[in-house]
Design a binder for these strands. Sequence first.
DNA 1: CGACCGATCGTCT
DNA 2: GACGATCGGTCGA
Length: 201
Amino acid sequence: MKKLPLSFYQRNNVLEIAKDLLGKLLVTKFDDITTSARIVEVEAYAGVNDKASHAVGGRRTERNEIMYAKGGFTYVYLCYGIHHLFNVVTNKKEIPHAILIRAVEPTEGISIMQDRTRKKVLDNTLTRGPGNVSKALGIFTYHSGLDLVRSDIRIVDDGFQYKKKEIAVTTRIGVDYAGPDALLPYRFIVRDNPYVSGKRR
DNA sequence: CGACCGATCGTCT
DNA sequence: GACGATCGGTCGA
């Protein structure tokens, strides 16, 4: 159980970092309650030139300001007025790269997750899709701007690693508004993992 | 299984 | 005033 160091997040290739996040454990510990889950689906958002990114064209607002911080912080924002989407900020200060965690496979605290999501039946939708990930792990927009190395949201390496063959790359979900950038191969998924959202391919 | 649709509100124009 | 980096329920095939 090794916490990922700042250097992991501060590399300049957001696609590489996104791929490397697959298999790592996302852990939250709030009010002495720990839940953890293995990351199985991520999407990279590649800064000012990426039309799907909140930072497209250098757009800088109160909401996305944390994207311009150095790598290793959380960026959580509200989507559709309902869902709290969890992102990891990467690269150096002033380079607004981020990675959206879209799906995880529960490893610890499953009953807690079931309580948080208020799901009646326990199935693969528990932590499938970015909205459910945050809900299950207890992450809200007020957790935006936390330091992943020092805070109660952390990402750790327990030695597990997916094989190269198990990882697939696809286009991102729900970013049709980005025009041609919607076709970029920036989504990384674990093949055949039941928690992965959207279409397989 | 796929298509459709309503929920719900902070953020940006 | 419009619109989401979504989800879950419903309806029909």
